[in-house]
Design a protein around this nucleic acid. Structure first.
Lengths: 226, 226
DNA sequence: CATCTTCTTGACGCTTTCTTGACGGTCGGG
DNA sequence: CCCGACCGTCAAGAAAGCGTCAAGAAGATG
C-alpha cells in the first residue's frame, strides 16, 4: 500500500477501458489494460498485478471464468463489473472467488473505495501491526485490545489515546502533545480532561493499583512502557 | 457433502422418474423424487439437496420457473432435462440459472458425467466457507443462514451486511466501512439506515434481548464476535 | 391494479461516553 | 513540619450516540 499497486482492468468496450484507466490513475494506481479474457490471463501470468477489475461480458470468456482461473493460483483482490440486468450473476461471481461486485454505471469514487477496501482486506494490517507487551495485546487495525486473552472494551477517546501513546512508546508525550493529537488544538490546555481519561484507560488495561504500562512524568506528560 | 450427495429429481412421467432413480443410485447418489414443480420446491426448502435435476415439462410450473425459484436462495447445481424440439428453451433455462441442459433421450453415463461435472464446478468455494458460531451457521456462498438448524430468511441487504461483518469478524468495521461496502459510497454518512438494518438483522439472528454476535462500539462501528 | 416484501426515514426514550468540579493523597522545598 | 503544586479518583450532569417503532415509499409479483 506504500506505493501504487498495479491493477489489471479488463473490458471489451474501449470507452469503458479508457475511463477506468483515468479513474485509476487519478486514484494513484497503475492500470494494466486488457480487452479479452485471454489477454487478461496472459498479462496476469506474466507479471501478476496487485488486483484485477473484470467485466462480466467479454468476447471470449466471461469474467466469472477469468476469476475462477485466477483463483486457481492467486489470492489477489478481484472486482467484477456488470451491466444492469446481470445482477443475478453476483452470487456466481462471488462464489467463483471475486471479492466484490460493482454494477454499471458506477461513480469513480465508489469504484475506488471498493478497490481500496478489497486491497485493505487482502493485506491484513499493513500500517499498524499488533503490539504485544506482557499480556497486553493491542491490535490497532482491528481496534481491539486484549489482556490475558480477554477482550477489553475501550471508548473511542480511550482507544485514540492509547494509540497515540503506543505509537510513540518509550518516548515521553507531553500533556500538550496528547491533548492536541487526541482532542485537537482547542483542548491543548485542558489538563483535567486528560487526567480523567488516563485514569479510565488505566483502570481498564493496568493491573489494579499499578501503573506498569502508562507511566507518569509529573509536570510533563505520560509515556507508554517500552 | 463429501459422500454421496442427495439429488432432487423431478419429472411428471413415472417411468422416467424411476429410471432416474436407478441411474443415480447406481452412480452412488441418493435420489429424492418429485413429480410436480411445487413438490420439488417444497422438498428443496425442507432439506436442501446437493443438486437438482428438473424436467422442463411439468404439470404445474415448468423447470425454468423452478430453477428461478431455487436460484433465489441457493447456488446448488441444477440440470434441466428436455424432450427433442424444446431445444430453443436451452438459453432460457441457462439464463434462469441452470448449470447444464440434457436432451432426452440421454444415456445414463452422459447424465451422470454432467451431474458430476456440475457438482465439481460448484465445489471450489475455498474463499467463502460455512461459518459456524454457537448455533449460528452462515453459508456465505450459498446465501443461507441457520440458527439451531432452522433456516432464517434474510433480505438481500441484511445478508450483504452480515457477509461484510462476518468476512471481517473480530475486526471492528466503522460505520463508514459498512455503509460504503454494503450500500455504496453515496450512503457513507447515512447512519440511520445502518442502524435500522442492524436492528432487523439482530432480531433475526440474535437471542432475544442480547447482542452476542453483533457487538456495538458506540461512536465507531460494529464488529462480529470472533 | 392490488398485494406483498423490502427499504428508508423520522421520532422518541434509553444508554454510553465525555466533561467538569470537588476532594484527598503524595512529594519536595522552605 | 507545613505548604503548594500536582496527581488520581469519584460522582454528577451534559452531550452524543443507540435501538426500536411505525409509517410511508419504492419495487417486485401475480
Amino acid at each position: 500500500m506504500s506505493e501504487q499497486p498495479r491493477v489489471l482492468v479488463c473490458d471489451d468496450e474501449p470507452q469503458i477501458l479508457r475511463a477506468l484507466r483515468v479513474i485509476l490513475r487519478d486514484a494513484g494506481f497503475e492500470a494494466v489494460p486488457a480487452s479479452t479474457g485471454g489477454e487478461a490471463l496472459d498479462l496476469t501470468a506474466v507479471r501478476p498485478p496487485g488486483a484485477a477489475i473484470l467485466d462480466l461480458m467479454l468476447p471470449d470468456m466471461d469474467g466469472v471464468e477469468v476469476t475462477r482461473r485466477i483463483r486457481e493460483w492467486s489470492e489477489m483482490p478481484i472486482l467484477v463489473l456488470s451491466a444492469v440486468g446481470e445482477e443475478d450473476r453476483k452470487v456466481e461471481a462471488l462464489a467463483a472467488g471475486a471479492d466484490d461486485y460493482v454494477t454499471k454505471p458506477f461513480g469513480p469514487r465508489e469504484l475506488v473505495a471498493r478497490l481500496e477496501a478489497a486491497l485493505r482486506r487482502a493485506q491484513p494490517e499493513t500500517g499498524e501491526p499488533t503490539i504485544s507487551v506482557e499480556g497486553l495485546e493491542i491490535d490497532l487495525a482491528g481496534r481491539l485490545v486484549r489482556r490475558d486473552g480477554a477482550e477489553i472494551h475501550l471508548t473511542p477517546t480511550e482507544f485514540e489515546l492509547l494509540r497515540v501513546l503506543v505509537r510513540n512508546r518509550g518516548r515521553l508525550m507531553t500533556h500538550r502533545d496528547l491533548l492536541v493529537e487526541v482532542w485537537g488544538i482547542e483542548y491543548e490546555d485542558d489538563l483535567q480532561v486528560l487526567r480523567a481519561h488516563i485514569a479510565n484507560l488505566r483502570r481498564k488495561i493496568e493491573p489494579p493499583g499499578e501503573h506498569v504500562f502508562i507511566r507518569t512524568d509529573p509536570g510533563v506528560g505520560y509515556r507508554f512502557a517500552e
